[in-house]
Each structure stands twice: as structure tokens, then as C-alpha cells.
């Protein structure tokens, strides 16, 4: 067992964990934060995506001990007061979710993508979300949600050349 200290959704936490414990299982089982899901065993699907120091990671591929000293944000952490985060709100507005299983991971990936590239083209959104699978939406409304969120988050900004929306 190893002791780790980390911040989860702004809250300081400390825990004794097995060295092989995956971050996603730490979040789900130890912290009771079950928004992030496990959809595969090969780091392919992105259902487990969370932010680690504000950058999206697949939490099924990170050991809990590797997150020591870092700050983790899950979908729950985007909505501390139950108010929808602008990206989450855009997913609702554009019907970017159906069964919801991919959604927490998808939203976290989108938040990270928009932080890196505030005004992506449709193609950039699709490339940015390539590692996040969705079986329900055909990606159409997910892409629309992310493009819409970009406009909401930074209304004045302009998309890179080759605009497509």
C-alpha cells in the first residue's frame, strides 16, 4: 500500500492505495465519483476521461499513485453547484448525448480540447475526439455541441482558416 495526497474536484484527499489501483477505480470506488465509466480494456474508448492538472487523460491508463500531488477534475467537478458547465450545457442544448455512458468522458475531452484550441474547426473537433467512442449519437450532435460551446465560451473569437461548422 502506498499513501497518496491529491486534489479531486478541488478537495484535498489522502488515501492508502494498492500500487496497481487504477485512477478510474480510485475515483469510482474510493471517492464514490462514478461519472467516469470504464468502456474498454485497451485505452481505446475514452469513457474514463478526466482532467489531470487540467489536461485530459484516460483514467483507466493512469495509476492512482501517478496522480499523487496532482489535481483531478471529473465531470462531477465541472458542476460544483449543480449548475451545468457551459460545455455540458451545450451538450444538452444540442442533444449531444443519448444513453449518457460516453458523456462524462466526452465532456471532459471537449473541455480539454477547447482549452487547447478555443475555436476549432469541425475537422479539428473530430480529430480531437477520435479517442472518445460513442455508439449512440453518430458523433453528429457531439461535434455540434463542441462547436457551439466554443462560441459560448469565447463569443468574440474566430475559427481558424478553413471554417466549417
Amino acid at each position: 500500500m502506498t499513501r497518496i495526497e491529491l486534489t479531486v474536484n478541488g478537495e484535498q484527499r489522502s488515501a492508502e492505495v494498492e500500487p496497481r489501483l487504477l485512477l478510474v477505480h480510485y475515483l469510482r470506488e474510493t471517492c464514490g465519483l462514478r461519472a467516469a465509466n470504464v468502456g474498454c480494456d485497451t485505452t481505446s474508448c475514452g469513457a474514463c476521461t478526466v482532467l489531470l492538472n487540467d489536461v485530459s487523460v484516460k483514467s483507466c491508463t493512469v495509476l492512482a499513485v501517478q496522480a499523487a500531488g496532482m489535481s483531478v477534475t471529473t465531470a462531477e467537478g465541472l458542476a460544483p453547484d449543480g449548475e451545468l458547465h457551459p460545455v455540458a450545457a451545450a451538450f444538452r442544448q444540442n442533444h449531444g448525448l443519448q444513453c449518457g455512458f460516453c458523456t462524462p468522458g466526452m465532456v471532459m475531452a471537449a473541455v480539454s480540447l477547447l482549452a487547447e484550441n478555443p475555436h476549432p474547426t469541425e475537422e479539428e473537433v473530430r480529430e480531437g475526439l477520435e479517442g472518445n467512442f460513442c455508439r449512440c449519437t453518430g458523433y453528429h450532435n457531439i461535434v455540434a455541441s463542441v462547436l457551439d460551446a466554443a462560441d459560448v465560451l469565447d463569443p468574440g473569437g474566430t475559427r481558424a482558416a478553413g471554417v466549417s461548422a
Partner: peptide, 9 residues
């Protein structure tokens, strides 16, 4: 949606 987008399903 609000439920799916905050605490998850």
C-alpha cells in the same frame, strides 16, 4: 440530461 451531465448516469 442534467443528471447525465453532472453526476453521470
Amino acid at each position: 440530461d442534467p443528471r447525465f451531465l453532472t453526476t453521470g448516469g
